[in-house]
């Protein structure tokens, strides 16, 4: 079940291009991090992969089929197999966490089951387990507007764990978490993806995290793929080219960290 983009371009409403001739393939079970400066087109790329956005040019294949050739029913069926987690999880403020997490199960539930679960949560155990993996199981019955930004983000990720997705598309999934939690959360997500054999595409602001945890790094700049390389091939020069040297003159890493991750741009990205 391959997922790939071939010369895909997406235009802004204002003219100009959010994506400009992108070609990339994501194999089954592969885990890819997308990095790049703000406005590089990371979110647009994820939306295109999620078949939420129809590209102006080029061919898209998601999990083996072209979403824009499918009928409405088939498209919805395809969408059940993927999960796009936006940076700010779209949680209704008054919804309880348990329902927000169980909403991840909706693709596999009938409408009747979904409604019944609003009266009495259908699978409290799985919601709690998903939350526990991000250490917020005590928030299970709170309302979403009572949570901090970081907790909300983790509820959004718990929803992903509850869902039956086989393609994880994550837009800045740990932007509201402190470094230690961010590491832990990514570890949980990656573990889950491997366990399911799901592919995973993650956009990340924190370059050090991307370099530390992902075997394949895609550098996106101005809607184009600047590089698409295995982790060991990504070096300082490429990163400077990606982010612009003017932004990264504080580019000095303590040598002992360099083997593990390049803690670059901590202050400027």
């Amino acid at each position: 079940m391959s997922t790939h983009l071939r010369s895909v371009s997406v235009a802004y409403g204002t003219g100009g291009r959010a994506l400009d001739g992108i070609t990339m393939a994501i194999g089954p079970g592969e885990q890819v991090a997308i990095i790049g400066p703000s406005g590089a087109g990371k979110t647009t790329l994820l939306h295109t992969l999620a078949s939420a956005l129809k590209p102006g040019e080029g061919a898209v294949t998601v999990l083996g089929s072209d979403p824009w050739r499918l009928s409405q029913t088939e498209l919805q069926r395809l969408r059940r197999r993927l999960f796009l987690a936006p940076q700010a999880p779209p949680l209704p403020p008054r919804q309880r966490v348990v329902n927000a997490v169980l909403a991840g199960r909706l693709p596999e539930w009938s409408t009747w089951r979904a409604l019944r679960s609003l009266v009495y949560p259908a699978d409290i155990r799985s919601a709690r387990t998903a939350l526990a993996r991000f250490r917020i199981e005590d928030k299970l019955f709170l309302r979403c507007d009572r949570l901090s930004g970081g907790e909300r983000q983790r509820v959004g990720l718990a929803r992903l764990l509850a869902s039956p997705a086989e393609l994880f598309l994550l837009d800045e999934p740990v932007s509201a978490l402190d470094p230690a939690l961010a590491q832990a959360a990514l570890q949980v997500l990656q573990g889950e993806a491997s366990a399911r054999g799901a592919s995973m595409v993650v956009s990340l602001h924190a370059v050090d995290l991307a370099l530390a945890r992902f075997p394949r790094i895609v550098g996106l700049r101005e809607g184009k793929v600047l590089f698409d390389l295995p982790r060991p091939a990504v070096d300082e020069a490429l990163l400077i080219e990606l982010y612009g040297s003017e932004l990264c003159n504080s580019f000095q890493a303590p040598p002992e960290h360099q083997a593990e991750a390049l803690p670059i741009c901590r202050g400027c990205v």
């Binding site: 939420a52 919805q76 069926r77 969408r79 993927l82 779209p90 209704p92 979904a114 409604l115 869902s163």
Partner: peptide, 23 residues
């Protein structure tokens, strides 16, 4: 929230009760 659920393949009715109605 509604669009997001729809993007995951959730039916319109369920998405309404889980995403729009609580708001």
């Amino acid at each position: 929230p509604y669009e997001s659920l729809r993007r995951h393949g959730v039916g319109a009715a369920a998405a309404f009760w889980y995403a729009t109605f609580p708001q």
